[in-house]
């Protein structure tokens, strides 16, 4: 009885999830009248703006990941080592981006860093890029922090740190040679999530007027019929590839690397 119910729930979920996907895929293949073809995909890939915006977003994602790792790994490490009592507070702070809408964050940024402020980041393209990266890092913070903190839980941070210190290591060595390698899997899964978020993000990029992939998808969607469907499928594939890589790395880790 409960088993049947579970299967029904599963089937409903699967239909809810897959039907639009199948519909989109099917639609994206019907650009040429009376036959299935990849014409819509060809046109998307031939559009220089596709590669430009995708390239821009990938670069932003990489920058966000690097910045996020440099920010989150030392912070999570330090909190675990020296201030375990404030961990709940830090955890709460890292959750805030989930409850504060991106649009609020970006308007805040624009107010704080506009051309007449002390730090006029929005005055130049580069400055705006940096601002956008900060915004992305904020959005990714809940996932990144949680992933890294979970990774740190698997090792005895304090003992390993003290062992390294007694062997003469300073903080940079400890972070780079011990902490980071031991939380690499966690960092990577955080990184793939960040990547997926940045690739699809619309609000911040649009409001800061940067040529990112999200606004391009929206633009295309407003003006064409078949190409947006193809683009959606491509974006979906990228996201899933990220998830797949995440799984793969986790698996790979379990087999070859150290557990105590």
């Amino acid at each position: 009885m409960t088993r049947a119910f579970a299967w029904i729930a599963f089937a409903l979920g699967a239909i809810y999830f897959f039907l639009p996907l199948i519909g989109t895929v099917e639609f994206s293949l019907r650009m040429l009248r009376g036959q299935y073809s990849f014409e819509a995909y060809r046109r998307v890939l031939a559009d220089p703006r596709f590669l430009d915006t995708l390239g821009y977003s990938v670069a932003m994602a990489v920058a966000t990941i690097v910045f996020g790792v440099l920010l989150v790994v030392p912070t999570a490490f330090w909190v675990r080592l020296k201030m375990p009592r404030i961990r709940p507070l830090i955890e709460f702070i890292t959750l805030l981006p989930l409850v504060i809408p991106a649009i609020v964050i970006v308007f805040g940024y624009i107010r704080l860093f506009n051309t007449s402020s002390i730090l006029p980041l929005t005055g130049s393209a580069m400055g705006t890029n940096v601002l956008l990266m900060f915004g992305y890092a904020t959005l990714a913070l809940p996932y990144m922090y949680r992933a890294v903190d979970t990774g740190l839980r698997a090792i005895d941070v304090r003992t390993l740190t003290e062992a390294a210190q007694s062997l003469g290591a300073g903080w940079v060595t400890i972070l780079a040679r011990l902490i980071l390698p031991n939380v690499l899997v966690a960092v990577l899964s955080g990184a793939f999530l960040t990547f997926a978020i940045v690739i699809g993000e619309f609000t911040m990029a649009a409001l800061l007027n940067r040529p990112a992939f999200g606004p391009y998808m929206q633009l295309l969607g407003a003006n064409r019929a078949y190409e947006p469907a193809a683009l959606a499928v491509i974006a979906f594939a990228i996201t899933w590839a990220c998830m797949g890589l995440m799984q793969l790395v986790t698996r790979f880790q379990k087999h070859t690397r150290a557990q105590r």
Partner: peptide
């Protein structure tokens, strides 16, 4: 310049 051995296995797992 001190060498320390801990109770828990504090070898670097990586």
């Amino acid at each position: 310049s001190i060498g320390m051995v801990f109770q828990a296995y504090a070898l670097f797992p990586n």
